[in-house]
Nucleic acid binder design. Structure first.
Length: 156
DNA sequence: GGCGGAAGAC
DNA sequence: GTCTTCCGCC
């Protein structure tokens, strides 16, 4: 752990640094229960939910296009049949202090992941060396963002 | 809609 | 600890 980031060795040739909040050891308690931000990323990853929730605007920014449906799906996952957007959004607001999310002010149903710290350390694998996976120090486009998250989701 | 306190489930 | 539930406030 360096400067609020964890460095994870993905393979012998690739290391990734990302914020502490994105890192959870397998042995940590509660790791069996899905977390809301994992679930949000899971939906964002699937094209079939583009009309429900989608990346939009700035990098890491997403819009909940159908709040009732997102709440319904979250309720199903957590076996909470009375889940609604009012309650789900309270859970999202708890992420503000944890610096996992923040609100995009003025944009309805729009939140943003705090991913400014995410960087690739060292060189990625050879087949990745010329791919968009090679990230800039503090910025990356949406394509890189999604690819990185596929890795993070595999790790988690 | 969005915010955050308070209490409680697990 | 991570939400879930409820709610007063803006």
């Amino acid at each position: 752990s360096v400067a609020g980031c964890h460095i994870i060795k993905v393979t012998v040739a690739c290391r990734i640094a990302f914020p502490d909040w994105a890192y959870k050891p397998e042995s940590s308690p509660g790791s069996r229960q899905i977390q809301l931000w994992h679930f949000i990323l899971e939906l964002l990853q699937k094209e079939e939910y583009q009309n429900v929730i989608a990346w939009q605007g700035d990098y890491g920014e997403f819009v909940i296009k159908d709040p009732d449906e997102v709440a319904r799906l979250w309720g199903i996952r957590k076996c909470k049949p009375h889940m609604n957007y009012d309650k789900l959004s309270r859970a999202l607001r708890y992420y503000y202090n944890k610096r996992i999310l923040h609100k995009t002010k003025g944009k309805r149903f729009t939140y943003k992941f705090n991913f400014s710290k995410v960087v690739l350390v060292n060189y990625p694998l050879l087949e990745m060396a010329n791919s968009p996976f090679l990230l800039a120090q503090n910025h990356f486009n949406e394509s890189n963002f999604l690819k990185l998250f596929r890795v993070l989701l595999i790790l988690s």
